[in-house]
Nucleic acid binder design. Structure first.
Length: 623
RNA sequence: GCUUCCAUAGCUCAGUUGGAUAGAGCACUGGUUUCCUAAACCAGGGGUCGCAGGUUCGAGCCCUGCUGGGAGCGCCA
């Protein structure tokens, strides 16, 4: 009899083991044993048929408490209801009837309210080493594509200036999410949406023109909302060098498009350079302008109008009922909406209807944004992730509503809102005023603390919590600094392997000893590392599904903490490299596995795994 | 006022989608190197998980309300 339901368990640690994803070999084997045992118990009439249909999302996880064995499962508690039996009774049944031909489970006991604590055969754990070393750089990563296409849109900074610190968290987060998804088996496209039209770029063009006039000795003042910074002057002088004074006598209709284009081009080139410098590639640069030129924006507006989703009015319906703050900018701009075309986003959960086209027929940015998202949907991705700054969170309901109003489905569209970061130096917040032209660029940050530390610290925290970026801490090349801790651990593993080679120990990570010859690895710390490494693919899949790179950072820290502890504790007694050659080979295999797993995890995050660390107090060898 | 994110150790934050006695780093106190990298390790103190209800075998996690903080509430993007 085939137990359909329990042969397809939902595992809370995620990672469907049937689909060629990297899998946790230990967990997969235990899940299999549980399923087979349940199946046989139902067949023998010990458990009711209802158990087969329950399909409970049981867990097989590493218990926090070491007294609880190697692995623990809550399957008995989840089956209590369908089986109409006490959790502990079900657990007892399982424990007494394991269908375990390979003898993976060497000890099991019922604990607490009905947990089953398991101890597994050391042999089974040792196979992890062969898996890690055999798969090398591919260990933990998806073996093949899962066939799902994902679009990650991130940064999408206005081409009105270089990237600054406000963009950094979104940039690193978006890149890490993209890397995470790739490693988890998705086909990822990284896209940058360029707002190369609209008011902001006009302001930019006028700012450049004002600087251009000043460069020719004209005493003009910058507009209140102008961009004053140095890079604007540089663009102005480059136009001056190229074209001389030919634009001074031109009318605004003549010079504005040219200055806008020059500004956008220059800034975009700078943005691309900044992103390349921090190793963030894009597959696609999507121009807003192109949506206008292709008629997609106009077409969408037309579609809204003809489907009755948009109406022409003096003001949006329902807006007068809305309580506005006295200083509301909406109130300020309300009269400008008169005669515009309004989209009924309020029918789909938005606060009020939104204008999409002015009285004079020109579309507003929301229309382009909607055309862009609908274009995305039509490109046929399984998942679309927008990485937004928290200050753009207000867009989300409008975009969703607009998509629904167009008769499309937004359920595959996810918004990852990256919260604000406060940059701290000397215990005080650093504030940068764009108005005053102060900019702390991403390039400056990376110059100051290095690319790995910048990435690590931005990725260390869950994206939806605010945090303080402590520049002093990031700068300190000391043990306060978590990125060094992890990288130092990797360097330590490398050193061990190098020492072994220097001692002419015949170890080759590509052909580790047979499992039977790894049996010397009996220390509890050694088993802990094996279990942790086995969980890598589960962590990766969970992080990818949830778009949470910080889970991988924690994994790196936890794995290397086990290694550091192991190394220090036994350095005087159970050394990795000893006269016992078989044991040395076994331990080197373990060390090589830790190195490989850590390297793979860091690589997914875009952080380097150095083989050497320069001690901070040591004199530099280069001088 | 509305939307949204957040509130866990002195500080910065995790908490594996509802599991067992809530964890880590920093800071503090004490200890560890004739020995494979001390950028490391070990030990110790430190908690009403913002408050109050609810859901169930079980809640830091889910629901409701409240308090406090961030962000947003424009034809800007």
């Amino acid at each position: 009899m085939e137990l359909r339901a329990v042969s397809r368990p939902h595992i809370s640690l995620l990672g469907d083991t049937r689909r060629g994803w990297g899998e946790n070999p230990m967990r997969a084997q235990i899940v299999d044993i549980i399923n087979k045992t349940l199946s046989s118990l139902v067949a023998k009439g010990e458990l009711p048929e209802a158990v087969s249909e329950a399909n409970p999302p049981f867990t097989v996880e590493l218990p926090k408490n070491k007294d609880h064995g190697d692995y623990a499962t809550n399957v008995a508690m989840l089956l209590a209801k369908p089986a109409k039996k006490a959790p502990r009774a079900i657990a007892e049944l399982l424990v007494a009837n394991w269908v375990d031909p390979d003898q993976i489970i060497v000890q099991s006991e019922v604990a607490g309210p009905g947990f089953i604590n398991l101890r597994v055969n050391p042999h089974a754990l040792l196979q992890i080493i062969h898996q890690v070393l055999g798969e090398g750089d591919a260990y933990g990563l998806a073996k093949e594509s899962n066939g799902e296409k994902v679009l990650v849109e991130f940064v999408s900074a206005n081409p009105t200036g270089p990237l600054h610190l406000g963009h950094a968290r979104g940039a690193f987060t978006g890149d890490a999410v993209a890397r995470l998804l790739e490693a988890a088996g998705y086909e990822v496209t990284r896209e940058f949406y360029i707002n190369d039209t609209g008011n902001q770029v006009l302001v930019l063009g006028r700012s450049i023109y004002a600087r251009y006039q000043q460069a020719h000795g004209h005493d003009v003042e910058l507009a209140k909302d102008a961009y004053p910074a140095e890079y604007v002057k540089n663009i102005a002088t480059s136009i001056q060098d190229q074209d001389g004074d030919k634009w001074l006598s031109a009318s605004e209709e003549q010079w504005l498009p040219y200055f806008v284009q020059k500004g956008v081009q220059t800034n975009l080139a700078q943005i691309k350079k900044d992103l390349e410098n921090i190793n963030i590639p894009f597959d696609s640069w999507f121009s807003e302008q192109s949506l206008h030129e292709s008629g997609k924006v106009a077409g969408l507006i037309e579609a809204y109008a003809s489907s009755g989703m948009a109406y022409r009015a003096e003001k949006p319906r329902g807006a007068e009922e809305r309580v506005r703050r006295e200083d509301s900018k909406a109130a300020q701009y309300q009269d400008q909406q008169a005669g515009g075309l309004f989209l009924e986003t309020s029918r789909f959960g938005d606060d009020e209807d939104r204008i999409i086209q002015r009285a004079n027929g020109t579309p507003v940015y929301l229309a382009a944004d909607l055309a862009y998202h609908i274009d995305k949907i039509e490109r046929g991705f399984h998942r679309m992730i927008d990485v937004f700054g928290a200050d753009h969170g207000g867009h989300v309901p409008r975009i969703k509503a607009g998509i629904q109003a167009a008769g499309k489905d937004h359920s595959d569209l996810e918004f990852l809102l990256v919260q604000m970061v406060r940059l701290m130096r000397n215990g005080q917040e650093l504030r940068f005023s764009k108005r005053a032209g102060q900019i702390y660029g991403i390039d400056e940050l990376v110059d100051e603390i290095g690319p790995d530390a910048a990435r690590f610290i931005f990725l260390m925290r869950s994206a939806n919590t605010q945090f303080d970026f402590d520049l002093d801490l990031a700068l300190r090349q000391s043990n306060d600094n978590p990125v060094f801790y992890v990288q130092y651990g990797h360097a330590r593993t490398t050193t061990l392997l190098r020492r072994a080679a220097e001692a002419s120990i015949p170890f080759d990570p590509k052909s580790p000893p047979a499992v039977a010859d790894l049996e010397g690895l009996r220390l509890p710390e050694e088993r802990d590392m094996l279990k942790k490494m086995a969980a890598f693919s589960d962590i990766l899949q969970g992080a990818a599904k949830a778009s949470e790179p910080h889970r991988l950072i924690y994994f790196c820290q936890e794995l290397i903490a086990l290694f550091h502890g192991y190394f220090s504790k036994y350095r005087a007694t159970e050394r990795v490299i000893s006269d016992d050659i078989p044991l040395t080979l076994a331990r080197l295999s373990l060390v090589a596995s830790v190195k490989q797993t850590l390297k793979n995890a860091l690589n997914i995050l875009g952080i380097s795994a150095p083989d050497h660390m320069q001690a901070p107090d040591a004199p530099s060898e280069d001088e």
